[in-house]
């Protein structure tokens, strides 16, 4: 039995579930669908199944007897994603990258393992992407982009050419990053958050929260009335 544990039970995990069988077949061509088992892994108590799949605790998943065991951290928050992935790697479980058949990856794209690419994503040529990249639906990553580790994109994000997206950056739904020049790429600093529908037209300092069109730095506590992340 080949087991895939999808870490989390949220919207990202449910999206990941739809891509699971296709991705397992890519990793193990020729294996029958009966040979795969896909489970959710969650720390939160509650129902024991979700959409016909078992929900396990991390301890139960690690103790599970299987021929091959994979995990994918389908958690939108990049810090939690890193935590969960590190835990699983310590337990000797290997990451599985999940992509939907409708996702288009053009030549010259290098990616570290552990990504999640659901429907209708496009990765153009000459893109480098770090580990555990996480995209929403219908995102576009254009040419000559460098994307770091644990980067999260929401739905309909468009990242134009010549941009450097550092580790742990979150780009929310509908936001866009304007293209840089080959000798001066647009740089989004580590841990920055680009809020929904923001249009980023220049460099973003590490840890900044940007909102609006054109995007300006905002105070997240003022914006949301509390600590959002």
């Amino acid at each position: 039995m080949i087991v895939l544990g999808i870490l989390g039970t949220g919207i990202a995990a449910r999206t990941a579930m739809h891509t699971a069988t296709h991705s397992l077949q890519l990793a193990h061509p020729g294996t029958d669908d009966e040979g795969f088992q896909v489970v959710f892994v969650s720390q939160k108590p509650g129902t024991s199944t979700l959409g016909g799949h078992d929900i396990m605790s991390a301890a139960e998943f690690c103790a599970l007897e299987a021929e091959t065991k994979y995990f994918n951290p389908a958690i939108a928050d990049s810090r939690h994603r890193k935590q969960a992935a590190t835990l699983m790697l310590h337990q000797g479980v290997s990451p599985l990258s999940l992509s939907d058949p409708s996702t288009l990856i053009l030549p010259d794209v290098t990616m570290e393992p552990g990504w999640l690419l659901p429907y209708l994503n496009t990765l153009n040529s000459n893109v480098r992407i770090g580990k555990y990249f996480h995209a929403g639906v219908s995102t576009t990553v254009s040419h000559h982009n460098e994307i770091g580790d644990y980067v999260t994109f929401g739905h309909r994000v468009a990242c134009s050419g010549n941009a450097i997206i550092e580790d742990h950056v979150t780009i929310c739904t509908g936001a866009m990053v304007m293209q840089g020049k080959p000798d001066k790429p647009t740089r989004i600093g580590e841990g920055a958050v680009i809020h929904a529908n923001a249009i980023v037209i220049g460099d973003v300092v590490p840890g900044a929260h940007m909102a609006g069109n054109p995007a300006k730095p905002v105070d997240p506590i003022q914006l949301f009335g509390g600590e959002p992340w």
Binding site: L106, D108, N124, S125, N126, H143, H144, S160, G161, Q179
Partner: peptide
């Protein structure tokens, strides 16, 4: 071979 070309070549 900037942005658009490699997108359409395949």
């Amino acid at each position: 071979i900037g942005g658009v070309g490699p997108e359409f070549m395949p």
